[in-house]
């Protein structure tokens, strides 16, 4: 462990790091349970600094919030595809579906193409509807950050991530055409393991939306048998760190 990086816990908790430092620190956090525990404790401490600054909110704030939540759909309860925990539930249901940037049409179809078991059919449709707005919401999230990486066999991958929303959209372009029976598969890589992010559709110019990023810090891309694998079986052709 690099003691220099480790000592950034305080600055991290105060949101006092530059974006690149923050991303580097989060990569370190992913591999350092001691740091993660310290960050959690310091966040509780910082919360008391916030509480100490409390002000009596004006009545108009409540009215404005009430008006907005009346028209704001909630993210469904995370029964089957919640954030990854250290106790690691099976990876199959944690996430989910694909869409082009802002592409609404055909979302339910894409879900079906990916063959991801997210629950009953109504749940799938609800999820698909929600994803059409998720990407535009992600794009406007105040803490939205994006990063790109080259794919070693050709093409590029881009991730748009918002930690406050606990969501990311991953987009690929210009990928090399694969032999029949092969497919690109995305992976979410974090300290508690690697889980599938789904097999990309054959025409992989769309985006995949990830909910419940959990502790995932890196997006990986591998070539797998067409149906996808439970865990990566080949060397990643792309490793894309997710910005903070």
């Amino acid at each position: 462990m690099d003691p220099e990086v480790h000592s950034l816990t305080g600055a991290y908790v105060c949101h006092a790091l530059e974006p690149d430092e923050r991303a580097a620190f989060e990569r370190h956090l992913a591999q350092c349970p001691t740091c993660a525990a310290e960050v959690a404790e310091l966040q509780e401490t910082a919360a008391l600094l916030a509480s100490a600054a409390a002000e009596t909110p004006p009545a108009r704030l409540k009215a404005a919030v009430d008006a907005r939540i009346a028209v704001t759909r909630q993210i469904p309860p995370l029964v089957d595809h919640g954030p990854l925990r250290a106790s690691a539930r099976p990876p199959r249901r944690r996430w989910f579906t694909a869409a082009g940037w802002g592409l609404a049409a055909g979302l339910a179809v894409v879900v079906a193409v990916l063959g991801i078991r997210v629950g009953d059919q109504q749940n799938q449709i609800d999820q698909a509807r929600q994803h059409s707005t998720t990407i535009s919401q992600l794009l406007s999230a105040p803490d939205a950050h994006s990063d790109s990486a080259s794919v070693s066999t050709g093409g590029t991958g881009t991730v748009l991530v918002s930690r406050s929303r606990d969501e990311a959209a991953i987009s690929v372009a210009g990928l090399a055409k694969l032999a029949p029976g092969k497919a690109y598969q995305l992976w979410m890589i974090g300290p508690s393991g690697t889980r599938s992010g789904g097999v990309l559709p054959a025409t992989a110019s769309d985006s995949v939306v990830a909910h419940g990023l959990g502790d995932a810090r890196t997006i990986g891309l591998t070539v797998e048998p067409a149906g996808g694998s439970a865990q990566p079986t080949t060397t990643p052709v792309m490793l894309l760190p997710m910005p903070a």
Binding site: E44, V65, R68, I69, Q74, R85, R165
Partner: peptide
């Protein structure tokens, strides 16, 4: 509004609701 929207993402294993 975000608390309303993402309440289901709160994970008590990671810290208090307040934090």
């Amino acid at each position: 509004v975000e608390i309303w929207r993402t309440a289901s993402r709160f994970d008590a294993a990671r810290g208090s609701a307040r934090a």
